[in-house]
Design a protein around this nucleic acid. Structure first.
Lengths: 211, 211
DNA sequence: ATTTGTACTGGACAAGTGTTCAGAATATGT
DNA sequence: ACATATTCTGAACACTTGTCCAGTACAAAT
C-alpha cells in the first residue's frame, strides 16, 4: 500500500465521520424545529429541545456552539427546504400563466401545511432587528427568496419588474394570511391566492423603473 | 349642599384620582417603551424597566396586571401616537398628489426618527403568532392601520383600490427598509420613498376587484 | 485485550425570571 | 392632630435559563 493510498483512506474515514456527524446534527435540528415551531425562539429552552430529541442537554452543546447557533441552523435548514420546493415548481416546463398559478398555489399550500414552521421565520426575522447575531441568516435567506422571485418574474416574462418590490408584496401577503390562518380563519389560504393573483396582475401590468 | 352636589363632588374626586393614576401609568409606560425599544419584548425584564423608570419592581405590578399587560399597553400607546401623526397628515387640506407625497414623507421620517420603537411593533406582532395574549392588540392596531390607508386612498381619489392589499404593500416596504436602516444603511429612508411612490403608482393605476 | 478517541450524560452553577406581599412612606380627609 | 387610604418598596419565593464539565459508555484501531 502506497503512502497516497493510506492518506486517501484516512481522508475517506474523516469524511465518513463528518458525514455521520452532519446527519446526526440534522436529526437534532429536525427535532429542534418541531419544538421551536410550537413555542417560538424566546420561549423554547434547550431543555425542551433536548427532551423532544431524546438526548441530554449536553449533547446539544456537543453539536452546536450555543443556542443562537442551534436556532440559526434550524431556520436555515427549514427555509432552504422551502426554497427548494419553490425552485422545483419554477423548473416545471409549463407556460407563463400556468406557472404563475402553480407558484401561487405552492405558496398557499405551504401556509396550510407548514404554518407553524413559517412563523418561526418571522420570529427570527424580528429578533434580528434587535440581535445582530441573526443578521446573517436573515440576510442570506431573504436574498435567496428575492432570487426566487426574480427567477419567477423572468420565467413569466416580467423582465421589467424588479424582484425586490414583488418579493415584498408576496411576503406581506404571505405573512398576513398566515397570521390570520394561525388565528383560526380557515379561509385564508384561498383568500391569499385570490389577493396575490390580483396584485401580481396589477403590478406586472405596469412597467416599473429601476433605482 | 344637596345630596346630588355631594355625589357629584365624589365623582369629581374619583375622576381626578383615576386621571392622576392614568397619568402616572402613562409615565411608566413611556419609560418602559424606552427600555423595550432597546432590547425587545423577550429580553427586557421588569427589573430593567423598573430601573429605567426609577421605581421598584413592585410598582410596575401596582399599575399593570402582569408583563403582558404592560407590554401591550406600551405598544398600543406608541402605535396610537404614530397613527395620530399619520391622521394629522391626512387632514391637511392639499390636493391629491401633494397629499400622497406628504404621506410617504411622513412614513420615511418615522423610519428615521423612530426606527427603534417601530421594531417593537414587529416584535410583538411576531409574538402574537405564538401567544394568543397578543392577538387583540395586534388585531386592533392592524385594523387601525388599514383604516388609515383606506382614508388615504379615499383622499387621493383611489376609491377602486382596496385598503388591505395597499396596507400590506406599505407595511412590507416599511418593514424591509426599517430592517436595513437598523442594520446600518442610511440610504434606506430615501429608497423607501422612491419604492413606495413607484409601487403606489402602479397599484392605484390598475383597478382591482373586491372580494 | 488494551489503548485511544469519539459520543454522550446529567448534575452543578451562577445568573436570571415574573410575581407576591408585609410593611414603610406618603398623601388625603376630617 | 389624627386616622384612613393610597402609593410604593424591595426582600423573598419558586422556577427557569444557558452553559460547563467531570465522568461514563461505547466504538475503533492496534
Amino acid at each position: 500500500m502506497t503512502k497516497i493510498d493510506k492518506m486517501s483512506r484516512l481522508v475517506e474515514k474523516a469524511d465518513a465521520k463528518s458525514a455521520k456527524r452532519a446527519r446526526k446534527k440534522d436529526d437534532l435540528a429536525d427535532s429542534a424545529i418541531a419544538a421551536l415551531k410550537q413555542l417560538g425562539y424566546a420561549r423554547t429552552s434547550l431543555r425542551d429541545i433536548a427532551e423532544l430529541s431524546g438526548v441530554a442537554v449536553g449533547t446539544l452543546h456537543y453539536y452546536f456552539e450555543d443556542k443562537v447557533d442551534l436556532i440559526t441552523y434550524c431556520v436555515r435548514r427549514y427555509k432552504i427546504s422551502f426554497m427548494k420546493e419553490m425552485q422545483s415548481i419554477l423548473s416545471d416546463d409549463v407556460e407563463a400563466t400556468q406557472l404563475a398559478e402553480r407558484f401561487i398555489k405552492g405558496l398557499s399550500r405551504s401556509i396550510r401545511r407548514d404554518a407553524e414552521t413559517h412563523r418561526l421565520w418571522y420570529d427570527i426575522r424580528s429578533q434580528a432587528m434587535f440581535d445582530p447575531a441573526f443578521h446573517e441568516v436573515v440576510q442570506d435567506i431573504e436574498t435567496g427568496l428575492i432570487d426566487i422571485v426574480g427567477e419567477f418574474l423572468t420565467r413569466t416574462g416580467n423582465t421589467h419588474s424588479e424582484a425586490t418590490p414583488v418579493y415584498l408584496m408576496l411576503d406581506a401577503a404571505f405573512r398576513y394570511h398566515l397570521q390570520k390562518y394561525l388565528a383560526g380563519d380557515q379561509s385564508m389560504p384561498a383568500r391569499f391566492e385570490a389577493q396575490v393573483s390580483m396584485l401580481l396582475a396589477s403590478i406586472t401590468a405596469a412597467p416599473t423603473s429601476g433605482d
